[in-house]
């Protein structure tokens, strides 16, 4: 039987101060073999998570849109904790806008955070993982990236990009014992989704949207956390390059 981790692993979770990130941090912190480093924009929330949860070693608040912050994040954590083993690219923003109304700034911001940051973070840790001959990368995408979503072309494009990253990197790093997978949630109960329904320009309401979901419900953040926990485990070593739709059936059409 494959033991879950022969030695403790250093995990970096981005977007840790958001609802999904928070849920991932909470669940993973229960495993004493995982030592967590967290980043996000809400410094107080990160500070609180660190003081409340066991196994959260450090936090660094900042904006992943800034590539200098990404470099600082990886170099300072690597220096202090001896390199990462697991990266969870969770930070992201949702942009709801018709193609007509998109602003150039929005395009840059969405692609910077949702796509360029994960690519850059993978770049910054890839050599370290190769040396260890072990690694796990999880990208939190969205089913919009594979099935499309009207009035969210920018967001969908950024999440589709993550699928390309996941599959290509999985091929490139397979021989080093590194796996890369993507989780594509459907509608998750989080401020990100609620901001969409709260938008007065949005014709959708929560009830109509849930009616479209085969299981007639939201995805809970903790469901994503449990899947992350499995995908980064030792027994999941043969699973790589996969995009898993965690969507209560929504992606089935």
């Amino acid at each position: 039987m494959l033991d879950n981790y022969s030695k403790s692993k250093i995990v970096l979770i981005t977007g840790a101060s958001g609802v999904i990130g928070n849920s991932i941090v909470n669940l993973l912190s229960e495993d004493n073999n995982l030592k967590l480093l967290i980043t996000g924009q809400n410094e107080v929330k990160l500070k609180y998570l660190k003081s409340e949860l066991n196994n959260v070693l450090a936090y660094l608040a900042g904006d992943l849109i800034d590539y200098k912050f990404r470099e600082k994040l990886i170099s300072s954590f690597s220096e202090e904790f001896g390199g990462l083993d697991i990266l969870i690219n969770n930070a992201g923003i949702y942009t709801w806008s018709s193609i007509d109304n998109l602003q150039a700034e929005q395009i840059d911001k969405t692609l910077d955070l949702n796509l360029k940051a994960p690519i850059h973070l993978c770049h910054l840790i890839s050599q370290g993982l190769k040396k260890k001959k072990w690694g796990r990368i999880i990208n939190i995408g969205s089913i919009s990236g594979s099935v499309g979503e009207a009035n969210a072309s920018l967001y969908s494009a950024s999440k589709a990009g993550l699928i390309g990253l996941t599959k290509s990197l999985a091929l490139e790093l397979a021989e080093y014992g590194i796996t890369i997978n993507s989780i594509s949630p459907g509608w998750v109960k989080s401020p990100l989704s609620e901001s969409v329904f709260g938008d007065e320009n949005n014709p959708l309401n929560e009830k109509d949207e849930i009616d479209c979901v085969p299981q007639k419900r939201w995805i809970e953040p903790s469901e994503i956390a449990h899947l992350v926990k499995f995908l980064i485990s030792e027994p999941a070593c043969g699973l790589t390059g996969q995009v898993i739709n965690l969507c209560a059936g929504l992606s089935l059409g």
Binding site: Y48, P191, E194, S195, F197, G198
Partner: peptide, 14 residues
Amino acid sequence: VTSPQAFGMLRALG
């Protein structure tokens, strides 16, 4: 510490 985001979400939802 744990309340500001909750108030923010309430406001966003009206």
